[in-house]
Amino acid sequence: MKTAHDLVAEAKSCTQEIALKDAEQAIRQADVLIDVREADEFAAGHLAGAVLIPRGLLEFKLSAMPALASRDIQVVLYCKTSGRAALAAQTMQAMGYLNVQSIAGGFDAWMAEGKPVVKPEQPSFD
């Protein structure tokens, strides 16, 4: 029986993972940057310009969003540490997307390098 780790390793072997040092350039060249984490993770901080599409909803959201219908758009994905992003990249490839990359190390690696993060300000009810 395969474990989650096995599935992630398999996904990483057949998808393109970009090194953190190349991530900013890849994001600039991408048509869309997708955060596949959950809504609470996104709300706590995310990469500027990222669109939230949780991995569990990915196939449904991609099918329902006309802006993401073209299979030749440039896509960069990320999650917390890169596992969910690799699985999402594999899914997108199975759906026919041709140019999908994920960020090695994910959001945690991005933060560890001190790269900029958007942290929405929460309203104060004082």
Results as ranks from 00 to 15, higher is better:
69 A>N: 11
104 A>C: 12
121 E>P: 05
110 W>Y: 08
31 D>Q: 13
71 R>T: 10
104 A>H: 14
62 L>H: 07
78 Y>N: 01
1 M>L: 11
77 L>D: 00
88 A>T: 00
3 T>M: 05
5 H>Y: 13
61 K>I: 10
69 A>C: 06
18 I>S: 03
49 G>H: 09
59 E>G: 02
16 Q>R: 14
55 R>D: 11
5 H>A: 15
38 E>C: 01
113 E>D: 15
12 K>A: 08
39 A>D: 12
108 D>K: 07
61 K>Q: 13
42 F>S: 04
96 G>H: 08
94 A>M: 07
118 V>Q: 05
77 L>F: 14
44 A>D: 05
62 L>S: 00
90 Q>D: 10
112 A>Y: 04
95 M>G: 10
68 L>V: 04
101 Q>M: 09
83 G>F: 02
93 Q>C: 07
57 L>S: 15
35 D>S: 00
83 G>E: 02
107 F>C: 09
90 Q>K: 13
65 M>L: 13
74 Q>Y: 10
70 S>T: 14
71 R>E: 06
30 A>M: 00
105 G>W: 01
35 D>Q: 07
63 S>W: 10
56 G>I: 08
116 P>I: 03
3 T>H: 02
46 H>V: 08
110 W>P: 01
45 G>N: 06
4 A>E: 10
82 S>V: 06
109 A>L: 02
73 I>G: 02
18 I>Q: 05
34 I>D: 04
33 L>G: 07
21 K>L: 12
81 T>F: 05
53 I>G: 00
33 L>P: 03
61 K>P: 01
109 A>M: 03
96 G>W: 00
108 D>T: 15
125 F>D: 15
33 L>A: 00
14 C>P: 08
26 A>W: 10
3 T>S: 14
117 V>C: 05
92 M>A: 03
73 I>V: 12
66 P>K: 03
42 F>D: 04
5 H>R: 14
35 D>N: 13
91 T>L: 10
46 H>P: 01
44 A>R: 09
71 R>K: 15
65 M>P: 04
39 A>W: 12
123 P>K: 06
105 G>E: 02
32 V>H: 07
67 A>Y: 14
28 R>H: 15
51 V>H: 13
109 A>P: 06
116 P>K: 01
81 T>V: 09
68 L>Q: 01
32 V>I: 12
15 T>S: 07
11 A>D: 02
112 A>Q: 12
66 P>G: 02
123 P>H: 02
77 L>I: 08
83 G>S: 02
29 Q>C: 12
25 Q>H: 15
121 E>G: 11
72 D>R: 14
125 F>W: 14
38 E>P: 06
24 E>S: 03
122 Q>S: 13
113 E>H: 15
35 D>M: 09
91 T>V: 14
24 E>P: 03
6 D>Q: 05
120 P>W: 05
81 T>A: 12
118 V>H: 05
8 V>A: 06
54 P>T: 04
